[in-house]
Amino acid sequence: MEDLLFELQLALPQVILGVINGSFYALLSLGLAVIFGMLNVINFAHGAQFMMGAFVAWLLLSYLGIGYWPALILSPLIVGFVGVLMERLMISRLYKLDHLYGLLLTFGCALVIEGLFRNTFGSSGQRYTTPPEFRALDLELADFFLPGYRVWVLIAASAVCLGTWLVIEKTKIGSYLRAATERPQLVQAFGINVPLMMTLTYAAGVALAAFAGVLAAPIYSVHPAMGANFIITVFAVVVIGGMGSIMGAVVTGFLLGFVQGITDVFYPEASQTVVFVIMAIVLLTRPAGLFGRA
């Protein structure tokens, strides 16, 4: 019994780090779910847009001296605008075709974006210094130290996830969105500009990815491949949660981060694969996903 308690005490930091990792999963799978709900497109470029978010924050800081707080707003706006262009120029041409074309197209976009950044900035990582004001949030419990910035990531990600959920479930624009997801033609017949809503929805999903990118910039090094490695795990998260609900995407994201943290304590070799194993188990028992509708 005491051994177990000791183990748990040792486990706590890893588990907290896991949950913080989970907040990135939650933000990214939330963006994917928002886009998929409206456009029926799996946005393979999501990882690349996450990376762009981090890079834009870094560029703003290094070339224009614009700090972390403005970047937290500016970077999602800039990357979201790129999203508007992508949707208008390319993705909108594919709505009548098999959904797999959307996947292939956005995969191509991801390659282009990653390649361009690699050409310009090289493959090595750039450092984004953590803003000093977060030291105030530093947590020290017994012999366990949690940097304040990570506390902030957890708070910010939870707030944005909750905010997105509130907008979609409780506001008028959210009700249009949900209606257009179910019956786009009918909603259009009521005089709502559905194509515009699709563009804005895509931009909003992309902006969420960029926001996650800015949050990630001080933790991970900012490099062109940072999103690609992340996004495949997020795909597994999405399969586990099912695309049915916004809340489902968020909850699954945090939950898997937590599970990954625990795995890291007891069997670190499997910490990177545990998400995929859980995906296999979920597919066996609930093929539609934990929150999905069959």
Partner: peptide
Amino acid sequence: LVIQGVIFIACVL
């Protein structure tokens, strides 16, 4: 990488 991505996009569109 960029050229492959562009070919992907061109093929799909």
